[in-house]
């Protein structure tokens, strides 16, 4: 999948699922939600991801009050991408889910779980928040950076340690190899560079 995204962003776009044929039902806080509640983003590992980024405050707990999604996971395109034996493992059926801080880039490789089709999976979580003091007590910076994903869609991202490290890695790779890595976000000033 990475190879396709890296060499042929257009092919990756074509293979990416559309909202209508991927998320068949959405409910949030007991009410219906739709396409407009999601942000589409391309990802080097997976062709397309949908982010539910609702900055709502919730006071009720339990499955009825959270986010409830139903996915259609059958393959709708008839292309056999396993042309190189099992080198391209993109024929598994399922979804990968990451629950993360709003407006941050999810780490779909290290901080996400895979959900199998055919099951009703429920996740409950508890959040512990550590707040750090701003200047002059600390050196935390609240600014946002403009980043692009492989579909060249610019998005405003809340900066965090993980994103900082990934941008740093991208700059290092670009400096060493003269091209960009598909798995790392691209800062604005490297927009005109090409993928490796």
């Amino acid at each position: 999948a990475q190879a396709i995204s890296q060499h042929s962003p257009k092919m990756a776009q074509y293979l990416a699922p559309k909202y209508e044929t991927f998320i068949v039902s959405c409910r949030f806080k007991g009410k219906k939600c739709n396409k407009t509640n999601f942000i589409k983003r391309m990802n080097g590992e997976y062709f397309k991801c949908f982010t539910f980024n609702n900055s709502a405050t919730i006071k009720n707990v339990g499955p009825r009050w959270g986010l409830s999604l139903t996915f259609y996971l059958d393959r709708i395109y008839g292309i056999d991408l396993n042309y190189d034996m099992d080198a391209m493992d993109i024929t598994e059926y399922g979804v990968k889910v990451s629950i993360h801080e709003p407006n941050t880039i999810p780490d779909m490789v290290n901080n996400a779980i895979t959900i199998s089709p055919g099951y009703n999976t429920k996740m409950a979580l508890r959040q512990t928040v550590f707040g750090k003091m701003e200047h002059p007590w600390g050196q935390c910076d609240k600014f946002r950076v403009k980043l692009v994903d492989i579909a060249y869609e610019a998005t405003n991202i809340a900066y965090n340690q993980d994103t900082c490290l990934k941008i740093c890695q991208q700059r290092y790779i670009q400096g060493k190899c003269g091209c960009l890595n598909i798995m790392r976000p691209v800062p604005n000033d490297l927009l005109n560079e090409t993928y490796c």
Binding site: A16, P17, F22, I23, R41, N43, E45, Y46, F47, K48, C49, F50, T51, F52, N53, N54, S55, A56, T57, I58, K59, G66, L67, L69, F71, L73, I90, E92, Y93, G94, V95, K96, V97, S98, I99, H100, E101, P102, N103, T104, P106, M108, A112, T114, L125, Q127
Partner: peptide, 12 residues
């Protein structure tokens, strides 16, 4: 009261 997190889903 809690702020609802962002949820990202990707087709595998």
């Amino acid at each position: 009261y809690v702020d609802f997190p962002a949820v990202t889903v990707c087709r595998t």
